[in-house]
Design a protein around this nucleic acid. Sequence first.
DNA 1: AATTTTTATTAGACTAATCTAAATACTATA
DNA 2: TATAGTATTTAGATTAGTCTAATAAAAATT
Lengths: 219, 219
Amino acid sequence: MLSFVEENYLKAIYHLSEAGKRSVNTNSLAEEMKTAPASVSDMIKRLSEKKMVDYQKYRGVNVSGKGKIKALHVIRQHRIWKVFLVEKLNFQWDQLDEVAEQLEHIKSPLLIQRLDEFLGFPKFDPHGDPIPDENGQLIEKRKDPITQLPVGTAGIVVGVNGSSASFLKYLDKVGISIGTRLQIVDRMEFDGSVDVTIDGKKTITISPTVAENILLSEA
Amino acid sequence: MLSFVEENYLKAIYHLSEAGKRSVNTNSLAEEMKTAPASVSDMIKRLSEKKMVDYQKYRGVNVSGKGKIKALHVIRQHRIWKVFLVEKLNFQWDQLDEVAEQLEHIKSPLLIQRLDEFLGFPKFDPHGDPIPDENGQLIEKRKDPITQLPVGTAGIVVGVNGSSASFLKYLDKVGISIGTRLQIVDRMEFDGSVDVTIDGKKTITISPTVAENILLSEA
DNA sequence: AATTTTTATTAGACTAATCTAAATACTATA
DNA sequence: TATAGTATTTAGATTAGTCTAATAAAAATT
Ligand SMILES: [Mn+2]
Ligand SMILES: [Mn+2]
Ligand SMILES: [Mn+2]
Ligand SMILES: [Mn+2]
């Protein structure tokens, strides 16, 4: 059984390696975990002994087969808890992570199974990220920033880049959240501002920066 | 901030001291915590330095003012989570504690406040134990085993003694759970068996042992 | 190709939480 | 009230996870 700390490292390695595609160097992991590089070296050695990561000194680290499954398991729990916090307890987006970081480590297969059921087997979390199934399978869905879609396109908001409190507050104010349907009705040539219709009702103009950070998925 | 382990010790001291009424000796605490007495001595010293317990060597330990509030805070979270597990996720009574022991340590005042609200501000947990409020205030309610109540009495099931799986299964089968209304309609002199009416509907006979372990509170 | 800079690992120390074994204090009983 | 027995504390070790400082390897620059 892995400790909370080991689970957090494994998750960080998984994310930094972009789902296992490339290996992760010690310093970036140290930055991510907010620890000293020396601590990372120690921990990698331990995870390596437990066959959770593939590691060669000075060559970087990556999740092993076992480690990837474990990481996806933690990610699954993290995202399911987020759905719960938003859907049932009305949490704001910026209050989610602190709590989900703790809840993701609760050890009880029954708990997460029942919670998943209680929430109606959600496929995406409130940030639009896909929830792995019990076996670690991910349904990947195309997510494009509004800036990269042509005028006329309609889609569902499935995520946002970044999570600054002020940005999220702005989205709340104009009535955009995960699940909102947006249609791109115009794009201004001179600065890239975009007119979008929200849920078929009102139309607003968003700045290019905002457009760049809202992710749509084919409706 | 206290660690999980410190919180568990504090809760155990609170319980074993019967809410702070008498001091607790090292061995009983060691038994409760399933650790060596030496480990208990170490931990007590630490909690004492943090002013969470009152302690004099060889004289036993008890919760301090601060410690009692902290213990009640953890107990509050434990019991609120139990309500959630039973009411929302349909957990069985015997599956509760393992998970609630973990969930009670999640650090987020907002989480427990919202959860409490989501559950409709419950006053008792599924075992019939009262839930302390945010300030650690407890509403104590008389709980009497059926054996000690006269024929004619009606009341709500607010708890059970013990929690053997087979006993709980029996209660499920006959349709008795927390919140069920029972009326005592007869008591057999020769063996103490009791006839009770369940929720005003059917009447069944329960053995003296069962009667002894079901706790009623004035309706 | 040699040198400098960056990155990563080891050395050694610290705290929390645990253990076993040894020492000490309290309690009960003769 | 001395002694035996029990309860409790201390001594000393261990493991997880962390740190700083020192060393070593790899990469980048001259
Ligand atoms: Mn976490
Ligand atoms: Mn010690
Ligand atoms: Mn606990
Ligand atoms: Mn080391």
